Computed example of a mutant assay.
Amino acid sequence: MHIVDTHLHLVYPDRFAYPWIEEVPPLQGAWTAEAYFDRAVPLGISAALHMEVDVAEAQIAEESRFMAGVHPRIAGVIAACRPERADFAEQLDRLSDLAALRGLRRVLHVVPDDVSQSETFRANIAALAARGLSFDLCVRADQLPLAIALADAAPDTVMVLDHCGVPTMQPEDFDRWAGDVADLARRGNVMGKISGVIAYGGEGPPEQRLRPYVEHMVACFGWDRLVWGSDHPVCTLGAPLEDWVATTHRLLEGCSEAEVAALLHRNAQRIYRLGEIES
């Protein structure tokens, strides 16, 4: 069963500036496509979407263009954007000839909550539908109501909730997270992404602490609205890529072949419009 990784970050510090990585020493240095696929292909990962790495704003378009051609197994790119700006259409126009472009992302947990609540932001996200582009929702668990409001404001735009909505992994917070995820999943334009959560804290072996969250995502979104992502190299803050893939397979034991295929590659091919990808 091959895997399409829908959330791969590649870091080329010789080409791009990553201000946020300066505060995360374990992620400093190069994380290249060659190094990733050398590890990923033996694990069954046949292709990946490059997820923007919040480079310096002036380099957003350059990052997307570079990553689109950096390796033959990169199936598409998700570009950074600034939907809060009045020049959002011009931002998209600068990428309009990039055939590999599949969607956009604005990391919302690094900006004030009111950024995504402005009329400009919401109108710009709604406009993505006409361009056939999706929007990845990158919010913390406490910001899930903001994601719900955004999904309601742009009902024709396909959105993908990154990292299971970033739960705190604290038992006392589970019910609130679960309720907000269930509410968000009632919006048919929103998909879920099981990505990178092995890096989150909590007690017990990874499979044990992650199972309630993964099972809740399945219960809310169903097998046809979920994708898988590594969040490499951020996932390495908790465990190596090999451990995350192995944990994923253990979590999927007992599931049907069709369910596993849907999560690991078929939904990604449909939602991100990747077409057929051979293993």
Score class of each variant (00 low, 15 high):
143 Q>W: 01
46 S>L: 02
83 P>C: 03
234 V>G: 02
264 L>G: 01
167 P>L: 06
88 F>M: 00
247 T>Q: 07
53 V>P: 00
207 E>I: 13
12 Y>T: 04
82 R>K: 11
197 V>Q: 13
253 E>P: 03
53 V>M: 15
22 E>W: 01
167 P>W: 00
219 A>M: 08
249 H>L: 14
229 G>N: 06
166 V>H: 12
155 P>Y: 11
163 H>G: 06
261 A>I: 05
234 V>L: 14
15 R>E: 10
80 A>G: 15
99 A>V: 13
91 Q>F: 13
183 D>Y: 05
223 W>E: 13
198 I>W: 03
40 A>F: 01
265 H>C: 12
207 E>D: 09
72 P>K: 09
137 L>I: 15
130 A>P: 00
190 V>W: 02
18 Y>W: 11
112 P>E: 04
100 A>I: 03
65 R>G: 07
137 L>M: 08
251 L>D: 12
167 P>K: 01
53 V>W: 02
104 L>E: 03
195 S>C: 12
222 G>R: 09
22 E>R: 15
271 I>A: 13
129 A>G: 01
232 H>G: 01
85 R>T: 10
265 H>M: 07
203 E>G: 10
57 E>C: 06
20 W>Y: 12
278 E>V: 15
34 E>T: 14
204 G>T: 07
86 A>G: 12
151 A>S: 14
224 D>C: 04
59 Q>L: 06
48 A>G: 05
217 M>N: 07
124 N>Q: 06
147 A>N: 07
75 A>E: 03
133 L>K: 01
225 R>C: 07
46 S>A: 15
232 H>Y: 15
80 A>L: 13
5 D>K: 09
20 W>Q: 04
185 A>E: 02
157 T>P: 02
36 Y>N: 09
205 P>F: 06
223 W>T: 13
